[in-house]
Amino acid sequence: MTTAGLRRGLLRGRRPLPRRYVPVLVTTGLLIAMFAAGGVRYENFATGQIVLNVFVDNAYLLVVAIGMTFVILTGGIDLSVGSVIALSTMVSATLISDGWAPLPVIGLVLLMGALLGLGMGAIIQYFEIQPFIVTLAGMFLARGLCYVINTESVKITDPLIVALGETHVPLGPELWVSPSVIIALVVLLAAIYVLQYTRFGRGVYAVGGSEQSALLMGLPVARTKMAVYTISGFCSALGGVLFAFYTLSGWSLHALGTELDAIAAVVIGGTLLTGGYGYLFGTVLGVLVLGLIQTILNFEGTLSAWWTKIVIGLLLFAFILLQRLIGARGGQAPPTPS
């Protein structure tokens, strides 16, 4: 319902806009404003390829943020995604340079990511440990495993992977995207379908709304919670594969801090950190906002790369406050116990 719901919400016009769409709309407005500002300030900025380049550069982040959205919708968090990306690039690069065929390697890496996620989900569910702690452990574990495999960067020279990394899929005159973008968009559409049109997807929202209630309503809470971490693990591994396409290498220090970028993208996209509210469409916008900040700073040229972090930090503050305000207006005072 993300895009369709948004459109319907806009078309209804007369009716006051449902509050749950406000964060998404704010992010949309922000994105348009940023793009317009860039277009006014720099020549050659307001072109289609600039937007497409944001997709090309951040396809892996989009996939990871999609997995993160599932987790955050249940009220959890996954800090391991950046390390799983690095581990995935490392495993892929090492196995391929050892002479394995690329496709089985990719399959293996995806399975590894999913299993890692499932393991963390099971620990979170059955030992009732905070997701923060469990995935923090997963983060150290995956990053550490990278160094066990190799402390140096490993180059990928396999022709198929190089082709996937360097092919330009033409979209029109002077417009192109990489195959990774198409993979990311397929994942996005599948994820939107799952969240909106399956019992599992609605269960994710229900668990995020109130785990206790979901349990009493007879929903499979344990299965849902473990599934979201599995999805996140899978998405991180896939993100790692896309990252390997992008950089044509495996390295222990790849994607340092990407977990925080993914969380920032999800939050800027309007998903509530406490769970239950948010749309994947917003996550796409969040990723675009982060990517566009980077692009603008590149155009500016003279500014230090740390300005990206500063702007993201300020945006996060603003969006968390916005969520708080919306939440405060919507919240009912809990009844006083007698």
Binding site: T198, R199, R202, A206, G209, S213, L216, M217, G218
Partner: peptide
């Protein structure tokens, strides 16, 4: 009330028992 306030009224009534065709929820 043991319901999920973030979902719609209809979803709360049918959560876990949604009418489906081929696994697709018929909203």
């Amino acid at each position: 009330v043991n319901l999920c306030t973030n979902l719609t009224v209809a979803e709360n009534i049918f959560a876990g028992r949604e009418p489906r065709r081929m696994g697709r929820i018929l909203w």
